[in-house]
Nucleic acid binder design. Structure first.
Length: 345
DNA sequence: AATCCCGACAACCGCGTCCTG
DNA sequence: GCAGGACGCGGTTGTCGGGAT
C-alpha cells in the first residue's frame, strides 16, 4: 500500500541543493520500509537520524502546507519520510516553520532572554513564547553558548556585588503570585502565537518577518552552512504559503549594520507587540515583572496589560531597556537571578 | 600543511504532561 | 478513574567549521 496520499507540489523555481553531510545516517532505502499497522513513534528500525536533507524538508513543508501542522504521528506515514514524528515536529518548529527569525540576536532580544531567564529559569518554551520569532531551541542554544558566558564574565569582573541595591528586598515576592500570573501570560502568548502562525488566520502576523531562507533573518549568520543556504529554496516554497510576505524580498543580504539592526529590532518588537497583544514591548516585560512585585494584586492578573506600566519600571526594567547598558545594573540582574534560586550556571 | 581544539548549532533522547477512549 | 498514545519540553550529544598551534 503506497504511502503517497498527498501530492508534492513544488514551486517551479524550487531547486535542490547540496544536502548536508550525513555521517550518522546509514544508507536507508526509502522504499520497502513501510510498516503496516500502527507504527511506534521512535521505532529504532528504519528510522533515519541525523541532519535533514533539503529533500526531506521539502516533503515535510509540502505536507504541512497541505494539511497544516499537527497530527505529527501521521506525518512520517503519510509523507513516506523515514523520520519519527518527534523529529518531524522538531524540524518544523525549530527550523522550517514560517516566522522564525534566524541570525544574530539583537540587544533587545538578549535583554529579554536574560530577564525572562531570571524570572522563569530554564523554561525555554515559556521564554520563547515571549519571543515569537525565536524557537526555544534557539534561545536555549544562545543562552548556553553566549549569555551564560557573558554573565559569567560580568560576574568575574568583580563588579558584582550582592550588597548593592538589594534585588532581594526589591523583589521580595510571592512566587505563587507571579507564577500564576506567568501561567496566564504564557497561555495568552501561546494562544496569540498559535493564532498568528495559523495559515488560516495569519493576518495578525503580518508584522512577522517571514522565514528568510538566506539563513540570515534580518541579520547575517556568522557561519551559514551549506545546508543553511539551501534553505533559501524552502523559503521560496514557503513564500507562496505565507499570506503576507511583506519583507521577504528585501530582507536578504542585510548585514550587521547597526542602523539596520535597530530597524530590525524595531520590527521584531512590533511583531512581538502584535502577537502578544501588548501595547509595547516594554509594557509586556513590565507586565511580567510587575507580578514579581509585592504590590502585584491578584485581581490585576485578569485585567489587560497595564499600558502605563512603563512608568513603573523597576531598576531591572530600566536596565533592560536603557539604551546604554549599565554594567552595574548588570550585576543587580545577576543578583536577582541568584536570589530567585535560579541557576545561571 | 596537518592536526588539534573549541565554539556554534542542529538534532536526539528521555521524561513529564495532556488528551482521549 | 485508568491506561495508553500523542505531544511538548529541557538536557544532552553529535557534527561541522574555523581558528590556533
Amino acid at each position: 500500500m503506497p504511502h503517497t496520499p498527498f501530492v508534492l507540489k513544488l514551486a517551479p523555481h524550487f531547486s535542490l541543493t547540496k544536502p548536508s553531510t550525513q555521517k550518522s545516517t546509514a544508507g536507508f532505502k526509502r522504499k520497502n520500509q513501510l510498516i503496516m499497522g500502527r507504527q511506534p513513534c521512535c521505532d529504532k528500525v528504519g528510522v533515519k537520524k541525523g541532519p535533514w536533507t533539503p529533500e526531506e524538508d521539502i516533503i515535510l513543508v509540502s505536507y504541512i502546507q497541505e494539511h497544516g501542522p499537527g497530527n505529527w504521528r501521521a506525518v512520517p506515514t503519510k509523507t513516506g519520510l523515514l523520520r519519527c514524528s518527534k523529529s518531524c515536529r522538531l524540524r518544523w518548529t525549530n527550523y522550517l516553520r514560517p516566522g522564525i527569525k534566524r541570525g544574530n540576536f539583537t540587544e533587545n532580544e538578549e535583554k529579554m532572554i536574560i530577564h525572562l531567564q531570571a524570572l522563569l529559569g530554564n523554561r525555554w518554551a515559556a521564554i520563547a513564547s515571549y519571543l515569537p520569532q525565536r524557537t526555544d531551541n534557539d534561545i536555549k542554544n544562545y543562552w548556553n553558548t553566549h549569555l551564560k558566558k557573558k554573565l559569567k564574565k560580568l560576574q568575574g569582573n568583580g563588579g558584582y556585588s550582592r550588597d548593592g541595591v538589594s534585588a532581594k528586598s526589591t523583589y521580595q515576592i510571592s512566587r505563587g503570585q507571579w507564577e500564576r500570573k506567568l501561567q496566564t501570560d504564557i497561555h495568552m502568548a501561546k494562544k496569540a502565537l498559535s493564532d498568528a502562525l495559523s495559515p488560516e488566520k495569519s493576518s495578525g502576523s503580518a508584522e512577522f518577518e517571514p522565514f528568510n531562507g538566506t539563513g540570515t533573518g534580518t541579520t547575517s549568520y556568522a557561519k551559514p552552512s551549506g545546508y543553511a543556504s539551501s534553505t533559501e529554496n524552502i523559503a521560496k516554497l514557503l513564500k507562496g504559503w505565507m499570506r503576507n510576505p511583506l519583507k521577504m524580498a528585501d530582507s536578504s543580504e542585510e548585514g550587521t549594520d547597526p542602523i539596520k539592526e535597530d530597524k530590525n529590532s524595531k520590527e521584531m518588537d512590533e511583531g512581538v507587540q502584535s502577537v502578544l497583544g501588548f501595547e509595547s514591548l516594554d509594557s509586556a516585560i513590565s507586565d511580567i515583572s510587575q507580578s514579581m512585585s509585592p504590590e502585584a494584586s491578584l485581581s490585576q492578573y485578569e485585567s489587560k496589560p497595564n499600558l502605563n506600566a512603563q512608568t513603573q519600571l523597576s531598576l531591572l526594567e530600566e536596565w533592560l531597556f536603557d539604551e546604554g547598558v549599565n554594567q552595574g545594573k548588570d550585576y543587580q540582574l545577576c543578583d536577582l537571578a541568584l536570589d530567585e534560586n535560579v541557576n545561571f550556571f
